[in-house]
Amino acid sequence: MTAFILRRVLQAIVVMLVVALVAFSLFQYVGDPVQLMLGQFATPEDRVRLTHELGLDQPFYVQFFHFVVNAIHGQFGVSLRIGKPVSVLLAQRIPATLELSICAALLALAVGIPAGVYAGLRPNSWLARTLLSLSLLGVSLPTFLIGILLILVFAVILGWLPAFGRGEVVHLGWWSTGLLSKTGLMSLILPTITLGLFQLTLIMRLVRSEMLEVLRTDYIKFARARGLRDRAINFGHALKNTLVPVITITGLQLGSIIAFSIITEQVFQWPGMGLLFIQAVSYVDIPVMAAYLCLIALVFVTINLIVDLLYYVVDPRLRADRPGGSGH
């Protein structure tokens, strides 16, 4: 177990270093910072001095090393556009994105898995067929279109829900939450549906097809021959086997929810990291872009690690280092 975790953590570190290298090399393409900072009337001596002070005369790998050390401490420099440290900007924006993403993921799981199980168990019922047809819409409609349609119906025509923003937020230490105020919760509904709908339909279709597959296996047939109750077969044996592949996909999707919240945040003017990133792109605000890149990579790597560990818990076949195995 320890060896397994250690191996995965090492792999994660390698991935993070590669991403950091990409983020670091972004800086090489944005012109000369020394020139920018000194302005027109600097002497060559000023140039040499500042280049030395900024450490830009040092070899590439030393600069990269400093970049990584700073990144580990959360220091990505100062935003070129806003003039505040990137770490402060991100810290302000993280709660909004995380709350939105987690709500969307919970919605996708809480509706997607039961709907998928139902559609797998009763593939010929009218409800299952309806769910399946509707899910095609969810998979094929682009996120921004869903968002705009929802705004049109629920904010513009019906006027039930706010069309943009986060509503009123409550500050708990450095964390700002929209979950504790009525307007905050109301504002959360449309973006959550917009962001979660694609994942919801994806999870539902995946669970359904896996469930159908598993129900055809010999061990389910044998479980029936053993006279087990339907509930034990469907929700004990079949569902557990279904969840093995579902865990992977869901884990990866969770990462993409956070990463792709960019579009939803843009549509709803949601003050999260995605919106910050979009604005950074249009102003070529490299420090913010680099920090965002590293942060998203960290999210993906962490989720992958958790997925691997979950696998390990769910599937005994992976626990190969257990004693007494007859070899495989």
Partner: peptide
């Protein structure tokens, strides 16, 4: 009771 052909596939791998 019943016994099927393929013992490798008759048992649930996760239990």
């Amino acid at each position: 009771g019943a016994i099927f052909q393929d013992p490798l596939a008759s048992l649930d791998p996760l239990f």
